[in-house]
């Protein structure tokens, strides 16, 4: 069990990056490690109610960056935060969680496994003493610590008005780089990201873009390893699944956004029975997934 400790602002252990941000906390409570100041740190943030596109993108960026040795900071929340941190740990990297409540509280409960894992390979940081319960106001002020700890802030998915915009303005105030993952123009969940890009944020098309901005070279493609639940290390990229002609046709029709079965019927002109058979076969091969009843997404192969 990792030890909890308190580090005051004037102590040497206090993260240097944090010391000079506006509104620097007078001290922080830490469980586990603090981010290594010698290594690059990226904060990955985004919507709590994210789409499957956001889910895939958070996993994609977090696992690549973590594999390249970048430390991932985020807020341990539902949605993008938790997905990115879990992906970073699963890829064998380290991650740090910044909380808006005491270290003895676990919130949200469904991230309990993440709370357990992160203190082993990373750490939890908060400015609130033990016993502080999650309160809305604290979440906004926690965001300045997330952006304060990082070299670069990456926004995966955000609405126009969202908590993420607070993190972004904090990051800009603190002089951190901001990158955003572009999305569809019609998708309100990506509207915040697209607006950031139009205002001059960096465009994150691949993890390469981020690594270059951090000044890290990235010559050889990183092989992402992922720790599966039974602790064995497996390479995530599967051998290209052998697909039949019809499977290819259906696979091409799928997207990272969920598509309903009726829409697929119209696009492929196959019968419902035939389509279901192909979709089940694609799911068994691990290249598609049913994300809600009769709504399917492609599982991204471009790892």
């Amino acid at each position: 069990m990792a030890e909890e400790r308190y580090i005051a602002r004037f102590e040497d252990d206090f993260p240097a990056r944090l010391r000079f941000i506006p509104g620097c906390p007078s001290g922080i409570y830490v469980k586990g490690e603090l981010p290594d100041p010698e290594r690059k740190t990226v904060a990955i943030v985004g919507s709590r109610a994210c789409s499957h596109y956001g889910y895939s993108m958070a996993e994609y960026f977090a696992s690549h960056l973590a594999s390249a040795g970048v430390q991932i900071v985020s807020g341990m929340a539902r949605g993008i935060d938790g997905i990115a941190q879990r992906a970073a740990l699963d890829a064998g990297g380290v991650s740090y969680g910044v909380l808006g409540f005491g270290l003895d509280v676990i919130y949200p409960k469904e991230n309990k496994d993440l709370f357990d894992m992160i203190t082993e390979r990373g750490g939890l940081i908060t400015e609130h003493p033990g016993g502080t319960q999650p309160v809305k106001a604290f979440f906004a002020s926690r965001n300045r610590i997330i952006s304060g700890l990082c070299d670069l802030l990456l926004v995966i998915e955000a609405r126009l008005q969202s908590g993420t915009s607070i993190t972004v303005s904090n990051a800009l105030e603190q002089g951190r780089d901001v990158f955003a993952v572009p999305g569809r123009l019609t998708d309100p969940l990506s509207a915040g990201c697209n607006k950031l890009i139009s205002e001059g944020a960096g465009i994150a098309r691949t993890p390469d873009d981020i690594l270059r901005a951090l000044g890290l070279s990235y010559e050889k493609p990183v092989v992402v390893k992922r720790r599966s639940r039974d602790d064995a290390f497996t390479v995530i990229k599967p051998a290209p699944a052998e697909l039949t002609e019809k499977e290819k046709l259906v696979y091409e029709c799928l997207d990272l956004y969920p598509k309903g079965l009726n829409e697929l019927v119209r696009q492929t002109r196959l019968s419902v029975s035939e389509l279901l058979e192909i979709l089940i076969s694609l799911s068994v091969k691990g290249v598609a997934k049913e994300c809600a009843k009769h709504n399917y997404i492609k599982i991204w192969q471009n790892w």
């Binding site: 109610a49 499957h52 539902r78 949200p108 019609t186 309100p188 969940l189 969920p258 994300c291 809600a292």
Partner: peptide, 13 residues
């Protein structure tokens, strides 16, 4: 409206 994220703001929970 789940899983249409342009309309649904429900969290997974």
């Amino acid at each position: 409206y789940y899983p249409d994220r342009s309309k649904c703001r429900c969290t997974d929970n």
